[in-house]
Amino acid sequence: MLAAGKGPQRCKAEAAPGHNAMFTYAIRRLLQAIPLLLFISIILFTILHYMPGGPLAPYMNNPHITAADIARLKHNFGLDRPVPIQYLSWLGKYVTGDWGWSTMNSEPARQAIFERLPATLQLMGISYLVAITLGLVFGILAAVKPYSPIDYFVTTFAFFGFSMPVFWFALMLQMLFAVHGIHWQAFGYEVDYHFPSAEMTSTEGGGFWDRVQHLVLPVTTLSLLNLATWSRFTRASMQEVLHTEYMRTAAAKGLPFLQILLKHGLKNALMPVVTITALSLPGLFSGAIVTETIFAWPGMGRLFITALQQQDFSLLMAYLVLSAFLVILFNLLADLAYGWLDPRVRYD
């Protein structure tokens, strides 16, 4: 089940690895990530450099800024130097924490990003939790009762989920639950409720309950795709595990069904699921851009879209490199999680 080519090797004959081996492995993978990140940043820097007007694009259309001003700015920012030199200078500053000046917000790019990061992490984190919880429940139920109605439901739901244009799903949620709202009358009670469809809190500011209500629609949107993928994956993985001999042994020992399923089965079935959840992270970034745009969520995704419209070079570069870094980091964490889930994994 392991991805071909890289990652830890499973070796049945070997004893469990010490923490030392795992530590060495983690360090080596981190060191390998450095040239990868350098390469990515070179590609991104080159691409962004071809943006019409380059980093000074925001000033180009300003009638108050003359050609002489542009030339002076170019010289002051070092933009008249060769591109490789400019890259090295950017790199030196980036690693020391100077991510450049965000022209659209007139603040350091790092500050702009870290102001928005918590909102994105909150949205992504909660969606992730919702998707993994429901995905495991759906997947296990479908695997335990194959070809039952619940299995067909899960399979159909999965197909619908990964065929869904996320932005359209978000629009439909907004239309149904925010614009149209829920109108319901029964047993003498009357429900007339519209879900909030923009921002993290109401304008008057809100407590916990207000925040929860604002989360419902964006979280539903962002978790849909992953829920679909992961429930299908859990089903396949769990089905495989259910047919192993140690499951039969556990059953023969007379252990209760739930204990067998969750203690012996789930832990082993989780292996491939861990990989797929880590590999889903780039998709979560993409999903966050769409979700945040539609629900006016004040996070990094919407910041990125605005930066793109305003041609904010430093901010775009900082966002792209940071997201690539997070993707690589999570891939590493997934590889390390193997060792915890499967002691047969050997790090070498």
Partner: peptide, 27 residues
């Protein structure tokens, strides 16, 4: 070649596509 593949897989696709099409649209 596989390192090259890994590199492209590590860049979130949608932001990169948006930057590239943004450049084309602006040109």
């Amino acid at each position: 070649l596989m390192r090259l593949t890994d590199t492209f897989l590590s860049i979130p696709l949608l932001p990169l596509l948006l930057v590239l099409t943004g450049i084309v649209a602006a040109s």
